[in-house]
Design a protein around this nucleic acid. Structure first.
Lengths: 240, 240
DNA sequence: CATGGTTGGATACGTTGTACACACGAGTGA
DNA sequence: TCACTCGTGTGTACAACGTATCCAACCATG
């Protein structure tokens, strides 16, 4: 029986000895640990302790730690909601912002092995893809282009949020609270590098940029540019 | 003395006892291991064995495994070359394709902790950023917009390549060689999910799409859309 | 030659994921 | 009612990992 089959069969009361452990409970508790203590705190022993069972108990329900991570991803992706059918652009924008909000709420999403984060097919992720693809289809866009748009947007969102979270986590690790402080801290970290004089344009950015500390602005600008480009390509279909 | 300072001082022949180990050699050997055996093979013990020294020897030159990963990233990013100054779009396109080529050659880049992969400032990464930012500056683009463009393009590239590599690795793990074979394999893996009937549009894609197995096409289409959108926003500067 | 700092070696510890054998307890067929 | 079986949780154990710590060998300098 597959992992997702087990997930779909919550209590199964008429079946054999009823377990105190279920995949749902494992997923919920694991997400709780990661939310408060980071992905590094996800340990089969820690998980078992928080579940109130022996270290090996969870292995009756998952094949290993990888399964736990997969369950966690699926569990939180259920939180992303798309608005009822509107135009494709509104849907894709909602998808992008929804996933970004999800990642900001569960920062560990950007820390897990990239393979799993980006590609793994879990029910909740597929449901999200289904909603987005259906919206694109509703706009009369063919299958190849639909998937291309979906992939491109999610690729941008993953890259952008990883970047944003990377900085945010670095700041948290170092105890920096605002942009100015972190620039000072970063500067001291990069003093030697910058003093090599090899990066004049980079230094210029550090001096001149005004939107340095506004990740929302940065995310939106990039996303809008991307959606603009997609829109023109849809209205004027390209060759090949 | 910082890690990068040590990196810049290769032999330092007039200094104290000369080491058989250098950060360069550590980086080179580590990259070799990861290239042939994957990131999972990077172990301080394995690294030491391939270096021909005792397990703890490397710790005289790096603070820990994290430093090794950082060195590896920096080492391979030196491979990315940008063409001599042309227009900004050509430069950004070269940057995107160069990084993609790099990732395809060193797939482990997508597997390391995302924080490190996306944000870490190493000399080679900063040199690349410097080149790209200088090209944008040369086109008369202001500091905020330059950095925004750079971040957006690299975000897309990282997301897209992670996605592409994720699929490629899954295929390699399962021994699938072409698209058709992997679709069969994937199908059997998702049979239960698809049989729930919850993903009709997704199924339609699997049946209809023609460019499913052309990652280069997918990458280019998304990148061109993104660059199109950026171009229109540069020529018609937006408010705020 | 003596000295001090730098390099590599050896040993050891705590933590991790997980294999394995066992114990319990409820459902089923006699 | 009584084995019997199967699904569940427990206890113990092991190999592999990152790395702290102490020690020996070396070289440039006085």
């Amino acid at each position: 029986m597959s992992l997702w089959e087990r997930l779909d069969r919550p209590g199964d009361p008429a079946h054999q000895a009823r377990p105190a452990l279920t995949v749902q409970r494992i997923a919920t508790v694991a997400v709780g640990i990661a939310d408060t203590n980071g992905l590094g705190a996800i340990t089969m022993r820690r998980l078992a302790k928080d579940l109130g069972v022996a270290p090996m108990a969870a292995y009756r329900h998952v094949e290993g730690k990888d399964d736990v991570l997969e369950l966690m991803v699926d569990h939180v992706y259920g939180e992303v909601k798309l608005p009822a059918a509107t135009d494709w652009r509104t849907t894709m924008r909602a998808l992008a912002c929804g996933v970004r909000a999800l990642v900001l709420e569960h920062p560990w999403l950007t820390q897990l092995p990239a393979t799993r984060a980006v590609f793994e097919l879990t029910p909740a992720r597929m449901a999200l893809a289904e909603r987005a693809l259906a919206a694109l289809r509703g706009a009369g866009i063919d299958a190849d282009t639909s998937m291309s748009i979906f992939r491109t947007v999610t690729a941008y969102v993953h890259g952008a949020t990883s970047n944003e979270l990377g900085l945010r986590q670095l700041m948290a690790d170092q105890g920096w609270t605002d942009g100015a402080e972190s620039r000072t801290g970063l500067a001291s970290r990069m003093t030697w590098l910058l003093n090599t004089g090899r990066y004049p344009t980079f230094e210029r950015y550090i001096r001149e940029a005004a939107h340095k500390d506004d990740p929302q602005w940065q995310f939106d600008v990039g996303l809008d540019a991307l959606l603009d480009g997609i829109a023109t390509r849809i209205s004027r279909p390209r060759r090949s």
